[in-house]
Amino acid sequence: MNSEQVMQDVNKIFIDVLDNEAIVLSRETTAADVEDWDSLNHIQLVVGIEKHFKVKFTSQEIRSWKNVGEMCDALANSLRAISA
């Protein structure tokens, strides 16, 4: 699964968690660009992503992401590591 495929699944998780069908993520998207992406919803998003992809992040990893693109890259790397 590459970053683009990961992004598609992540987009669906955002739509579901934030209950907003209009969300279209790009690599440059940040919390400031998405309505309701606040600290509490951020937790739900991370939990949703970890459950969906069956991966575990660390709090340091999460804090290091500057945008959705970096999150999807980290996710794709984790998935590659799992399948290798």
Binding site: H42, I43, V46, V47, E50, K51, K56, F57, T58, S59, E61, I62
Partner: peptide, 11 residues
Amino acid sequence: SGIFDSVGALE
């Protein structure tokens, strides 16, 4: 049923 250390959450 779930532990999410990254965000300090338990399910």
